[in-house]
Amino acid sequence: MTRPRIATASLAGCFGCHMSFLDIDERLFELVRHVDFDRTPLTDIKAIGPCDVGLIEGGCANAENVEVLRAFRQQCKALVALGACAINGGIPAMRNQFSLQEILAESYLDGMGLDQGQIPNDPEIPLLLDKVYPIHEVVQVDHFLPGCPPSGDAIWTFLQELLSGQAIRLPYTQIHYD
């Protein structure tokens, strides 16, 4: 039997979920005995290949997020929304209370201390979406693991159950939205 491949990515997030993933600590050794890692900041592989599990941290705030997310969806058998931002936009989605115009003007034109500001328009910079979107509004998501971040224990429980093909049930103290 081939070893399951896992990929991870952080979209509009803070990498906190990835840090929490590292918080499974010595259990990482056990994990790497059973799985291979594809694209993830841990391997520094830049392009994703066919995978069994994709863990997505962060919501979609710009066109690049959408592109990465779609690539993950195409390549992954199971896609997981990992953490609050992937699930409902999280903290970045607090910008949805304002229009993009208001936000960019405040940040780059009218904000305190700005002189002759201009809205960045370098084509290198991904275009912003009008809002930050939860990833399940862009692609189909198979599993949700809440938390800001989900605790290392919750991630460990989740991965164990997912990889063993069981129904995923987290103990009470491992379900939290913050």
Binding site: A63, V66, I119, N121, L127, L129, D130, K131, Y133, E137
Partner: peptide, 17 residues
């Protein structure tokens, strides 16, 4: 997407030219 992707990018396109 639950939203229209092009429409969602329109404001940024307008603001950045």
């Amino acid at each position: 997407p639950a939203f229209d992707l092009d429409a969602a990018l329109a404001p940024a396109r307008a603001l950045t030219g």
